[in-house]
Design a protein around this nucleic acid. Sequence first.
DNA 1: CGATACCTTGACCACTTTCAACGTCCGTGG
DNA 2: CCACGGACGTTGAAAGTGGTCAAGGTATCG
Lengths: 242, 242
Amino acid sequence: MNAPVLANVKCSECPIRHRAVCSRCDTDELAVLEQIKIYRNFKAGDQVFWRGEPMDYVASIVSGVATLGKTLEDGRTQMVGLLLPSDFIGRPGRSKVEFDVTAVTDVTLCCFERQPFERLLVATPRIAQRLVEIALDELDAARDWMLLLGRKTAREKIATFIDMLVQRNSVDHGITPALALALPLTREEIANYLGLTLETVSRHLSALKSEGVLNFSDRRNFVVTDLEALRAISGDESDDCL
Amino acid sequence: MNAPVLANVKCSECPIRHRAVCSRCDTDELAVLEQIKIYRNFKAGDQVFWRGEPMDYVASIVSGVATLGKTLEDGRTQMVGLLLPSDFIGRPGRSKVEFDVTAVTDVTLCCFERQPFERLLVATPRIAQRLVEIALDELDAARDWMLLLGRKTAREKIATFIDMLVQRNSVDHGITPALALALPLTREEIANYLGLTLETVSRHLSALKSEGVLNFSDRRNFVVTDLEALRAISGDESDDCL
DNA sequence: CGATACCTTGACCACTTTCAACGTCCGTGG
DNA sequence: CCACGGACGTTGAAAGTGGTCAAGGTATCG
């Protein structure tokens, strides 16, 4: 919470201007947000929120990657969300977080104090509407993940995970799927996301590598060498076409 | 979709009046809803929506139990939600469902056509606000379930499941936890909810019974005989007190 | 260059699944 | 009213997947 407060970028030049909670706002509405926003920076590994802690501000991720995690008494943890730029943290009407929010890489947040933000929600339907959309998107994602956690094998989980990274990368980089991925998560973090152990993750990644489905030397940088095979392995409906 | 259309109950006498999406409405707003709502009935086992199908209405559950389910190509299925009276089906701005909705018992729905309902949302902030709350509650529930699916053992899953039923029963019946539960799900449906097989569910229920934690003779009616033990087994934070 | 954190691989073990048989409940029809 | 059939549930034995424990390897940062 003692994260350094950076000079704000102007909303009109903000990299997430057209995707975040403010995406539907007109110039006037943006001016209001501009006045109450504060940038905060976190370093890789910093805790952004602690579970059960009062949450006095809400935020959008401007850059970096953060995770939502839940932990059992004995230390078993499960990641319940992966936050990427333009994702939103916090919910109106709730003062407490139900999970830990952790910065995986260095992270910049665009923060609004909770109460002024809630007042703004009432006055600015466009923000409220966008927030509903965001919540419903998260809900869909959570449910897909439930299917993965409950019913997929380790191999399928890992293939699905990589495929998901490819897909979201495509959104950023245009139509052609960018098959080179920079993956900021450790094996253990991947395991916590997939409901596996780090050893199992390592084993199956090695297997996929030796099968020629993907490649990596460095531990951060992956290249998908056979996207079709990857998708076949992931176990999702093959032709869920439109 | 060809469910019989029943005579509507008046909103003012509706059993879910104070919990559903309409709970914040005043008399005037209720009158508007009253005009566009239609009751539909489904029999146990009926499919309410099919995955991928256009969803031309949204609805609240008036009575009965329904499930949200996702299925992999090879037939593995995972339940991603359990819908009880006052729960809401559908989302504004989405025309397609991403999962199957199935009636587990006989179900009565209070339906609104999607487009008029969406117009109403814009005009009636109280409904929109309540809908955001509902979506965020579902999101929290989904994330708790992700922890369960990803990290809990079969035994813990089942204890958590029973405990959840006790808790939601208490909400209906007052402060004293009602320890007798009518459970309308088969072993297989429980298994699909918990990411297990029906045999594993059966085995662990038997184990809990022989340990004196719960009791059942009939397959529908459970009695929790040792709530404290049940909670200890469920693996959640023991004292997550305020 | 060394320390530390991260990753890989192997051997073994435990839990859940799978396969199978049998039992019980309940509705239907003889 | 009882007999049958089908759906649902229980229990056992065997198999398999992923977890655990352990050792050694590799990147990365001071």
